[in-house]
Amino acid sequence: MENIRTLIVDDSSVMRKIVERSLRQAGISIAQVFEAGNGAEALGTLQENKVDLILCDINMPVMDGLEFVKQLSSVENAKGVPIVMITTEGSEGHVVQALSAGARGYIRKPFTPDQVKEHVIPVLAGKP
């Protein structure tokens, strides 16, 4: 997929930059990056903008990643947009919760660019 627009949701600006760099290192062509520091900010961003991919942390202040994913169904611009969680919460329970809420992929921190590639490219290609 070429020139995608992506939304990166993480309360750490450093981590948002690392995620963006990892996407580029994975060979994903990015046209535009939107950033949000929590789920509520991300919902606001999606009211105004369309994206092709969402990468989202779980533990965040104000609105966490799981609640954000649950609320995405009510956002017109987010319908059908694949979501990949990137988080330190690596338990099976969290994975199940995230996937049940609508996420299509799950990456545990710490991660390598190769892991980002392995999880994101199939999701962008529409594979389960």
Binding site: S12, T87, E89, G90, S91, E92, H94, K109, P110
Partner: peptide, 26 residues
Amino acid sequence: GEISNMVAGNFKNKISGMADGCMLSV
């Protein structure tokens, strides 16, 4: 802060039964 968060998360994920039963703060 992010390094401490990842170390804490990575640590608890290494202990059986802890990953699901222990939450991290911001």
